[in-house]
Amino acid sequence: MDYLIVLATVGGVLLIAYAHHLKKSAENSSTANIVYMDLSKFVVRKSGVGGLPSDVLFSRKLMLKGKPDRIVLEKGHYVPVELKSSKRPASPYPGHVMQLAAYCALIEEVTGRRVPHGYIQYADGEPFKILFDERLKTELINTLDEMRLALRTGNVRPTRNKRKCENCSMAYRCPTSRKRINT
């Protein structure tokens, strides 16, 4: 019977030590100060976060809307975190970088505060820290212009990824799609 008390005490001490370890890990990670989190079907938002709505972010300047997976507070800056379920590549995919850049721009316009960078977190490994500098802002604007031109003209570039092609909203305009409607 005494061994059960000793076992329970040791287990309790180990549990407390592990909880302390988890708390310290969270404090040191980029997710320690989550101020916004999109959980797909519902949004969790900590109260008192200045200027961040709990729904979709909208930019009148860019005519763009979106909902980042997370926004963390880092050294007084709101920083978007884009979560990806795929394995970590050697470098982030260009489309993922543009998506993150769009979230940076949205947060800047909604809050009126500069966003210095964002993170792309793949299923494994360390997150990529992406600087939101003038070069990336210009690339974002050029990409948005290119996308809008494709929408207006119907001149879309086909993808090599068949899974993306199957669910593409532009399939009716794509020369390689079976869903193409001749106009």
Rank of each mutant, 00 (worst) to 15 (best):
T9S: 09
V115N: 03
Y93E: 08
F132S: 02
D2M: 15
Y93H: 01
Y103F: 15
P175A: 09
H21F: 13
S86H: 06
F132V: 05
T138I: 14
K164A: 07
S177Y: 11
G12I: 12
M1E: 00
V6K: 06
A8Q: 04
D145C: 07
E166S: 05
M1S: 10
T183S: 10
A101G: 12
K67S: 10
G125A: 10
A8P: 04
H96G: 02
V10K: 04
R180S: 12
S30K: 13
L136H: 02
T111L: 11
N167Q: 11
D69Y: 01
L140C: 04
I130W: 05
I181Q: 04
R180P: 11
K84I: 03
V110T: 09
E27L: 15
M170R: 05
Y3M: 12
H20C: 12
T183R: 06
S47E: 15
G50C: 08
L52T: 08
T153K: 07
G66K: 01
P92L: 10
D2P: 04
R113F: 12
A90K: 14
G154E: 04
I71F: 06
P68M: 09
R135A: 00
S25T: 10
E126Q: 02
I107M: 01
R113K: 14
M63V: 06
D133T: 11
F58C: 05
V56A: 09
V115L: 12
H77T: 09
E74R: 15
E134A: 13
L136K: 09
G154V: 01
T183Q: 06
T31A: 10
T111G: 03
A101W: 15
Y18P: 01
E139K: 15
L7W: 08
V79A: 06
E82Q: 07
G66T: 11
E27A: 14
Q121Y: 00
K75G: 08
S177C: 06
K84F: 10
L62G: 03
V79R: 09
A90N: 11
V6I: 13
F42E: 10
Q99T: 10
R160M: 11
R60Q: 13
K46N: 05
H20D: 10
R152E: 14
